[in-house]
Write a protein that binds this DNA or RNA. Sequence first.
DNA 1: ATGAAAGCGCTAACAT
DNA 2: ATGTTAGCGCTTTCAT
Lengths: 325, 325
Amino acid sequence: MPERVSQATRERIAVAVTATGYTLNQAARSLRRQRAGTIVMAMPNAGNPYYSTILDAVLAEAGHRGYGVLVSNRVQGDPTIWLRDYFLSSRADGLLLFDITLDVSGMRRFMEERGNLPIVVVCDEIIEPGFNLVTSDNREATGRAVQHLVDLGHQHIGLVAGPTIHDYPNERTLGFRQALARHGLAMREDWIIAGDHSIGSGYQAGSQFVALDERPSAVVCANDEMALGFISSVQQAGLHCPRDVSVVGFDDIDMAQYVSPALTTMRQKRAELATISTSALIDIVEGVRDPAKPVRIILRCDLIARASTAPPKGAAVRPAREFRF
Amino acid sequence: MPERVSQATRERIAVAVTATGYTLNQAARSLRRQRAGTIVMAMPNAGNPYYSTILDAVLAEAGHRGYGVLVSNRVQGDPTIWLRDYFLSSRADGLLLFDITLDVSGMRRFMEERGNLPIVVVCDEIIEPGFNLVTSDNREATGRAVQHLVDLGHQHIGLVAGPTIHDYPNERTLGFRQALARHGLAMREDWIIAGDHSIGSGYQAGSQFVALDERPSAVVCANDEMALGFISSVQQAGLHCPRDVSVVGFDDIDMAQYVSPALTTMRQKRAELATISTSALIDIVEGVRDPAKPVRIILRCDLIARASTAPPKGAAVRPAREFRF
DNA sequence: ATGAAAGCGCTAACAT
DNA sequence: ATGTTAGCGCTTTCAT
């Protein structure tokens, strides 16, 4: 209540502040209030440009609410170790966990021990109950990506899949399989190529694709970076996109519209995802939100149709076996 | 000196630690030691994927040395405000200042007041004495980019320049101008197109290029993102790269080798820049380094020749004026 | 409406 | 080799 301070006192303070250049000591404040005023943003690899937009939005929202953002890459291995380190040390008040292939059972055990921790899982495809979650409709969106290809006339559709470290099914892969079944299309395991979301793995997937005896006429890639690598690879092998193969990506990274052919993709609202999750996390930290009701926000993706998809020129082709590759 | 603790005591401690799940309270430690154990990485816009690799390397090096990394976007305006906030509040011990178009005189004033602050300027093109600096040989490297085009036979070379917020000359633009002079090439001001390092601005520069009455046969772009946008733009306008225009980028972002045509570019050793600067900053923070001798490390860039540059098909062409654009 | 005092959890200095 | 103590700068509570 600023009204409770008299005008005169406020004057005196203001003068003293500017005169001495006083600034609050955050360490002392944190110690006394048992609150760091900081959240951690943890991701598998900060080197992925996918996170640029997200980081930007997290920074903005956290800053807006007076929180600092500590960024961390080290979220492999036993979660109890780093969870302990972040929370018990009062280094941070909350954790934004991005796309982590986490040891869910380990997390659960730790959280049962220590009571509910302010953690929000973001952009993850693993929809486990009990965790606060802000993500996209990955499964359904991948279904719509397939739908888009089917609408164009494709009957033979492959997948460049993302990493599948754990047993539980990857949502995008699941969505792909279900969509194929729904459309009564053949599901060929050799048309599902494994990747790890990096451009390089997309490029490799392209080589595998080119070497296939029979090739699908379209491919869904689990993210844009792999799609870009894939297209680059098949183009270098002498194939043309979309004439020889249509490609759909996922995410709509900034680059997607500036490559050629411009990439058809399912747009994830990354900035929104970041803002919502950050805001929710801080609500939890500040006790505004009822901890009994986990956050559970799933945003819809939008199909952005660009030039990398087109009707197929025919059925799956038996390739002439002499690629310069 | 771990030897000074008896085996028995060490046992007792270890047992107690695991039993109680004790973790050091960082806030208390920071308060007592007057040191945060944290550095700030400040950049103009975290949304730029250029920083992904850098962030990754900074995180690795800082973590290695036991420091947390606070990321910040808010470095516009009066530097005294945010400098005060970071340092006087003991929120952070040091500052990594990336590519900031900063108010140098304001910085100077503040640093004179407060004594030498642990700040390392990184990746900046502004080479001001007195600051700790880790950067690339921007001017010289841009000269080599021009050299590469000249070697291919180009006589008419344009520039898509980066942002020039301040009065002092941009190093890359300067390198370009000097190189042109050195080779005795004409310097046409309408062949210098302004950009802001974003893909979008490169795309716009492409439109301007296409609309030119007389066009250069090659263009140097001040960064890769603009180069990608530029190529995308001119290709959509019906021109071919490198047949109609050769393009050199700057940075060698991950994407550069996977676009088509693969981008010729001057590679900045971004990870190295990040590791070196982080390490130097922590040295300064810890008093290992003599503050009287500012750090001054300038790395050489490497020309990565790819498919976006080729010999010109002829002299600067007078375009037929009917682009579908 | 303002002042005084206790204490958050650590570390460094000093005492044993 | 181990134990004790003061105090970092803030916030909160209690007293004026």
